[in-house]
Design a protein around this nucleic acid. Sequence first.
DNA 1: CATGAATGAGTTTTCATTCAT
DNA 2: GATGAATGAAAACTCATTCAT
Lengths: 196, 196, 196, 196
Amino acid sequence: MARKPVREERKRQILKALDQCLLEKSFQNTSIKDISRAAGVNHGVLHYYFANKEDILLHYIDYAVQDFKSQMQDMLGSKNMSDLSRGEFIKEVFGFVNHRITLDRRLSKIFVEIWEIALYNEAVRAKLRQAYVEWIQTLAGNISGGSTDRDAASVMSVAMVAFWEGMALFSTVFENGEIRFEEVLERFQQQILEIL
Amino acid sequence: MARKPVREERKRQILKALDQCLLEKSFQNTSIKDISRAAGVNHGVLHYYFANKEDILLHYIDYAVQDFKSQMQDMLGSKNMSDLSRGEFIKEVFGFVNHRITLDRRLSKIFVEIWEIALYNEAVRAKLRQAYVEWIQTLAGNISGGSTDRDAASVMSVAMVAFWEGMALFSTVFENGEIRFEEVLERFQQQILEIL
Amino acid sequence: MARKPVREERKRQILKALDQCLLEKSFQNTSIKDISRAAGVNHGVLHYYFANKEDILLHYIDYAVQDFKSQMQDMLGSKNMSDLSRGEFIKEVFGFVNHRITLDRRLSKIFVEIWEIALYNEAVRAKLRQAYVEWIQTLAGNISGGSTDRDAASVMSVAMVAFWEGMALFSTVFENGEIRFEEVLERFQQQILEIL
Amino acid sequence: MARKPVREERKRQILKALDQCLLEKSFQNTSIKDISRAAGVNHGVLHYYFANKEDILLHYIDYAVQDFKSQMQDMLGSKNMSDLSRGEFIKEVFGFVNHRITLDRRLSKIFVEIWEIALYNEAVRAKLRQAYVEWIQTLAGNISGGSTDRDAASVMSVAMVAFWEGMALFSTVFENGEIRFEEVLERFQQQILEIL
DNA sequence: CATGAATGAGTTTTCATTCAT
DNA sequence: GATGAATGAAAACTCATTCAT
């Protein structure tokens, strides 16, 4: 069960290189050679490990989504979390999403890029759909409880994720001075807390 | 003596053709020849009327934004609006945005496309920023009044537009069955109305 | 015999415009629209007065050569010239050629441009050949006399023109500091005078 | 293990192909496809080995200048040269330049082409300047000695090269019958020898 | 496995020229 | 005569992909 570390390692190296590249250019404008240069490998290698450019993208999305999920798991699973009251727990979640996700311009950029590709690419769209469904359900599971029934929690979660995505969108275009991100996020958070 | 509009007419024709094309392919993947084919003109014409491909895009964004604004103006300016109570007025605005904007997949698609281009193109980013600032301010102007002070209205407007954008994003990826768009929008609307 | 002044005037205006353009770009890189812009006329006009782009060039060469000849005639025909001794006369010619022709970077540039076109264009080559034959013969006629027989004068003239052309070539590439143009021309001049 | 030269070999092959092409068309009129056709390679190859068309030209100039220099070195370095008296040495140099350089129409053509490009291209101009400075200095070094001081030799060299270039220019336009090249070169040579 | 040479389809852009008004 | 809209051929360049070594 030696899990061919070389193979997986190389792939990861390439996906990380693409991640780097996306900070500068769109996926379309990023050439295979750009990625290989960033990865420090010969461009032929990319064709050896991946079927074609789209295949790289598809694996990259898995990688990015997985990264996102891990971060989320780490946060949700952190020891002290279990000791919190529901209100405090939700505050923690908000705090994390607000600052580590929504306002992380780098992450937002990459997700907008993926959203756009999904517009015209069914395979990408499927992956994105799956990721958001999971994210919304996880959230619903975490906020429901007590008075909040499952159905309301679900609707709520969709709204929350939509709002966060919208704010993430804004973060890629506006400077901090133009939109008072913190305030808006704060206000929204309070509102949600009151509802729950 | 009325032969002046040729130029403007042709430009419009080309921008409309691009609009068509964007339903099928990303701007990048839409070639000048694709656009010219859709417009039913020789490809040289596109270079006659526009400096280059980016210039077409920039004009297209103006066109799309203008179209959006016009729709909004029409709605806000409609006679019966002035007779409505504030609550009813806001309901009208919501209804319009929800169904004519947020859930208009075609429109959402185009805006996601523009958002993505803005990620790596300062000129496009500037146009987008400007459009959203105006849209947010218009909204703030319309919802403030009575107990709601200007500042709160501004924060509120940002949140609303962010939410709508997020929902628009979802509309490009999810089918109606997967996300209960109507319900979420409805719920959000009620919440806003309570706050105001 | 009203010599259609409009027609000739327009043509001249266009040729002057080309002259202007050649300071910035090669003939090849100068588009018909560039010329028309410089001439302040619609580009269609150029096709009305000239058969095609090459035709403009051919007429331009005549114009440039004619201009050169006129300058030369003016100089040679100037009153006081006839009163000079042969040595002084030749000095005058040298002075004129040195400063008004050879070291006139603008003129040199245009002639190098024409020389190059002549390389691959028989019609242009013919015009250039004709112009230089005339220029050499005129020179030979002016320096022969006394001890110098016609044959030697002819050989001499070729050498002189070749030298001047070479220096003109240099003037388009070197700055004054790099090559002591004045000194070289002076030295050559003395040598010629001694021979004659 | 000796497979390195592929790259250099290909580049040389391409530069030779350009050399061929320049006999028929100007550099501007020579398309990348023309060159690749002449080289017997796919046009993509040219973009693989050179950054762009100008890059090909710049390398071509180096190649042409180097070729010229090698010929000169070979001639100057030929064994028997060292045994010659200064007068005979200079005669040899003249003979070589006259027939192998100045009257080599192919070479002249190419240099006129380069001169013209230099008119509007600073990078090319720089290369040309450098080549001529070296050529003039080499010449000055070779003709100075004895009574001729360095300064006079320098001025002389400029004059000689200018003359040769002028004659080369003529060789591209005139047929042998029209200009008695041999005689003119001969006459000039004698004159120079007398001066030195 | 790795390398880099090679391919060729496809893209944007330029521009002389034509022609209807 | 003058205008500017339109055409279409041709150019430089990019790049994913293939493949021999």
